[in-house]
Amino acid sequence: MKSNKHNGGFRVPENYFEGFADRIKDRLQASGGAGLPEETGFRVPGGYFENFQDRLTQRLAGEQPGDSRGKVRRLWPARLGWTAAAAAAVILLVTFWPASTADALGFEDLAQTEIQRYLEDDGDDMGAYELAESLPLEEIALSDVLESLPEEDQILDYLNQDSETVDELYWNGDE
């Protein structure tokens, strides 16, 4: 078996991990009293999968522009439409041109609450505890949590400075 420096010299029996999932499954089934079910118990209505394709095709046809919708009749003649569009464009340009160049919105203009809402709504739902729970220790290196690794001297200084604090942890006040 390939040795790994993180294993600290420990070894596991041959093919230990290959059968691991099955062993857990067996143990889980044994713990469920009558045995853990192999199936979920969910059912579908009769003919559901046979008809799904047709139902989806109908829905897709409804969403395709021009496929099944009736012909759209113009409310305004084409020339009048262009005139109205040009007039609207001129009004918008005159109204908003100076403001849009002077006050372009940037990331810093986002309200704090908007950012928080985005993170709450769209961020990963895993909390710090769950995240720590789900990450195996062997995948985390000290460099992942520290920006720069401390020098050996700094570690020794720290241990010497804080030795009294450590003693407090081991000795009760009444001793």
């Binding site: 853990l36 969910f42 579908v44």
Partner: peptide, 20 residues
């Protein structure tokens, strides 16, 4: 559309308590 027995229901209850 669920015809699971007691064990299947218990498993679904247990699964509901797990993080996503």
């Amino acid at each position: 559309y669920f015809d699971g027995d007691k064990a299947q229901l218990q498993l679904q209850r247990a699964l509901a308590r797990l993080p996503d």
